[in-house]
Structures are given as C-alpha cells and as structure tokens.
Design a protein around this nucleic acid. Structure first.
Length: 355
DNA sequence: AAGACGGGGGA
DNA sequence: TCCCCAGTCTT
C-alpha cells in the first residue's frame, strides 16, 4: 500500500473535527490558515470563531478599522499576520470585487500568503493538486523516509517539497493534505510519538534506526537579546497617555506607553536623569506615584523585562511625540496591547489602584 | 542565507 | 530552559 493510502486510511479513522473543514469558502479557509501559521490549533480556534462571527465576509473585514482588527488579534502574536490579513481583505474587496483568486499563482501572490498557505487554500478551497509542507509534514516525511537534510535550509526545503509533491494524492489533494497534517499533529508528534500503534511503523526509517528523537533536523539556532522597558504611565484625572507603536520593531501598530528603553531597569534617580525621560516630560510638574513590579515576556528573539512607572500629572501631558495621545481610562479596551502591557493592566493591585 | 516576528504549551 | 507550533517577510 502506498504512503498516501496509508495516511488516508489513518485519517479516516482518526481525523479531528475542525470548524474550517466544514466549508470550502476560500475566505474562511484563508482566514483559518493565516491564524494557524506558527500557531497551535487549540490556540487559534477561538480566534477563528471570533473573526468568522465579526467578519462573515471579506467585505466586512475589508471595511473594518485597523484598530478593530488588531484588537481581535490581540494575544495571538505575529501581528504582521493581522496587518497583512486586513491589507489583503481590502485588496480582494476593492480590486477583485470580493472574488477570491482561484489559481495557485494568484493565491501565492497575496500578501501574507507563502508557499504553505497557498497550497492549503488551493487544495482545500479549489481542489488543486498542491502539496502542503508545514512543520507537521517536515516531521512526518523526515522520519518515515529518514531524511537528515536540515529543514531550515534552501536545500532541505527543496528536497521536502519535491518529495511532498510526488507523494501527493493528486485527485484528492484536499483530504490528503488535511490527513498528513493531522497525522503529524496527533500521531507523529514532536516529542514522544506513540510509535507502537503507528501504521507507518514497519516502513518508518527513523523508527528502525532509532532516529525518532533527532528528526527532523534543524541547523540554525536563534539567539535572544535582553531588552529593558521603562514604561511611563502618565495619569491625569481620568485619562492616561498611550503610545501607538510605529517604528520598525516588535508590536507594530499595537499600543503601549511612552517608553524609556535602556540597558537595564532604571532606578528612580536614573529615570529622572534620563535624557529620553526629560525630553518626554519637558517642564511639566509631575509626581512619581509608584513603580510596578518587573514583568517579563519571552519572544522568539528577545527577552523583555518591563516596569511601569505610574506618574501623576497636574494637567494634560504636553505631547511632543505624534505617537502619544490621551485616552479616557474607560476607553482603553478599544486598543490592542502587547501581552506584557496586558499583564500589567490585569495585575490585581495595580488594576485596583489605577481604575 | 540569515534574522525578525508572539505567545502558549509540553517536556 | 528549550523546543515546537497548519510560516512569511525583510535584509
């Protein structure tokens, strides 16, 4: 029996029930695939439901304000996905009359859609014979066929893509693509796969060679840098000052506070002497009420520590930065915040003190 | 080719 | 801690 037949048989008995599989509407498929990029199904599910309910059609998404899209995406990470999602919705609505492109080439041309997502949409929505190659597929193929080429190299990508294409059940690309990904996600798992009940066991090179724990191979390792954020939370009556992040950095188009980034968390003395702080505060009267505890957040390439200085102003902040603006405290829920800011807001004692 | 880009969950 | 997750874009 062929590889694809075994995968399809396994899928028939073990498939997961997932909401985006109920539809062949390319808009819904696209939405689900963008959400699922580098994201576990369980984590993405509630976001898919939220977006589907809030934006039933591409036109609804296209006409939504950017802040609303970012707010719905809040907490999911990789926010460029949300920015590109919105951009592409507007493109489809205005340039394509709302008609989702139906060829692999055209789909691949959409912003935010790469090789994986193009193959997924092309096969799931239009039945086109393009093999998906995601993290699951890399793992399954590298193990079953004993491929040691690192998956994060040009050669590795080429090799796995070619193999995936030859294995694809071209007349049932959609179900086969779902099947191999489900197989990778629930049977051929990254750690401790249950090989004793695996239908591929007899044909699995990694199993016979005891290479399950080392395959697939990645060559690159990432280095993290430490960053220290000294956030300035200006309060004046019932308003606080927010900052819209507009520089080329993490969290583009999300909101936080005026920021003094330094090589460490600052003491109060250091903060008062800091040039950036002085530039922001200018000549205004202020009182530092308290500093929060340090909050930590791990990103793929960064380790961030942030403290939040709660500073009372006698009058509205004289804003000298176009990214700064005042907002009523009761309206902060309209803005999308990075996790670490959200954590600060949710911190119980501070929450009570602030609001 | 290498780096940047989030956040959560499992070992 | 480290690794991985229905990857893509920029440099």
């Amino acid at each position: 029996m062929s590889f694809s037949s075994k995968i399809l048989d396994w899928y028939h008995e073990n498939k997961r029930s997932l909401p985006w599989r109920k539809s062949t509407d390319p808009y819904k498929i696209w939405l689900s695939e963008i959400i699922l990029q580098q994201t576990r199904v369980e984590q993405g599910l509630p976001y898919f439901e939220k977006f589907k309910a809030t934006f039933p059609t591409v036109f609804d998404l296209a006409k939504a304000p950017a802040d609303q899209v970012m707010k719905l995406w809040e907490g999911l990470g990789y926010y460029s996905r949300a920015r590109n999602l919105h951009f592409t919705a507007k493109f489809i609505a205005t340039e394509l009359n709302g008609i989702f492109p139906n060829t692999h080439t055209a789909i691949l041309g959409l912003k935010g859609v790469g090789p994986y997502t193009a193959a997924a949409i092309a096969s799931f929505a239009f039945g086109l014979p393009h093999a998906v190659v995601d993290g699951n597929v890399f793992r399954v193929l590298s193990r079953v066929f004993g491929i040691k080429t690192p998956i994060d190299t040009t050669l590795g990508k080429k090799e796995f893509n070619q193999l995936a294409d030859t294995l694809l059940a071209k007349d049932k690309a959609a179900v086969y693509n779902q099947a191999i990904m489900d197989f990778g996600a629930t049977q051929c798992t990254p750690a401790n796969p249950n090989c004793t009940i695996c239908p591929m066991q007899k044909h699995c090179t990694a199993f016979s060679d005891k290479l399950i724990p080392v395959l697939p191979i990645k060559s690159k390792k990432i280095k993290k840098r430490d960053r220290f954020f000294n956030y300035l939370v200006f309060k004046n009556a019932d308003t606080i000052v927010l900052n819209k992040r507009q520089q080329k950095d993490i969290w583009l188009n999300l909101y936080d506070f005026p920021l003094v980034e330094a090589n460490s968390l600052l003491s109060e003395k250091e903060l008062l002497e800091n040039e950036v702080f002085q530039k922001i505060i200018g000549t205004q009267a202020f009182t530092i009420k308290k500093a929060s505890k340090p909050f930590k957040q791990l990103l793929t390439h960064q380790k961030i520590v942030a403290i939040f200085w709660e500073i009372e102003l006698k009058s509205a902040l004289l804003v000298n930065d176009s990214s700064f603006f005042e907002v009523k405290q009761k309206n902060i829920n309209n803005f999308a915040f990075p996790k670490i800011v959200d954590l600060y807001f949710k911190d119980k004692s501070l929450y009570l003190e602030l609001f």
